[in-house]
């Protein structure tokens, strides 16, 4: 019998699960809530400002997203966003700033492999799947909804 299928190794796997250091879910949750909520408030401030200057609801929402993408990219470039992510976890990944971070981080990292197959190709290692699945589900769900209205 192979070692990885033996009762002894099965017992060990259970022991490893038991000895997992307890992540303090409470503080992780609080951090995710505060940082995620904080980024949304920042977006809301931008949006309020744009609405105040007479932009339509739709346009204000688009410009807000662009502004958040800009700040997410810039903070990644400055080496700050990964520190926010270390604390915020999902709170920094879920807002669109996290989407920007997922594009900029590999772009910076793989720049040393060239501007085309390094930087530009690797930009999409995480954003690519997000866009692909987003578009696929939008097309499928949207068409179903349009056809069976």
């Amino acid at each position: 019998m192979r070692e990885r299928e033996s009762p002894q190794s099965k017992r060990y796997v259970r022991l490893v699960e038991k000895e997992q250091p307890k992540v303090s879910l409470k503080s992780n949750l609080a951090n995710a809530f505060l940082i995620g909520g904080g980024i949304c408030v920042f977006g809301e401030i931008i949006r309020t400002y744009l609405l105040y200057y007479g932009l339509s609801n739709d346009l204000a929402s688009v410009w807000m997203s662009i502004a958040l993408v800009f700040f997410g990219s810039l903070l990644t470039g400055l080496g700050i966003y990964d520190e926010i992510g270390r604390i915020g976890g999902a709170g920094s990944a879920i807002p669109i700033t996290g989407f920007a971070n997922s594009i900029v981080a590999p772009a910076m990292e793989y720049r040393s492999e060239g501007a085309i197959l390094g930087l530009a190709a690797r930009m999409f290692i995480i954003a690519g799947p997000v866009v692909a699945y987003g578009l696929i589900s939008a097309t499928v769900f949207g068409l179903i909804r349009s056809v069976f209205r």
């Binding site: 879910l25 809530f33 904080g38 408030v41 996290g98």
Partner: peptide, 24 residues
């Protein structure tokens, strides 16, 4: 926004999913 992120954090901490999975 905070609630969505907190729910996402529960998924990250309680499962083997990565942040990329969560975004998708």
């Amino acid at each position: 926004g905070g609630t969505i992120c907190a729910l996402g954090q529960i998924v990250l901490d309680k499962s083997k999913l990565t942040q990329a999975d969560l975004m998708v």
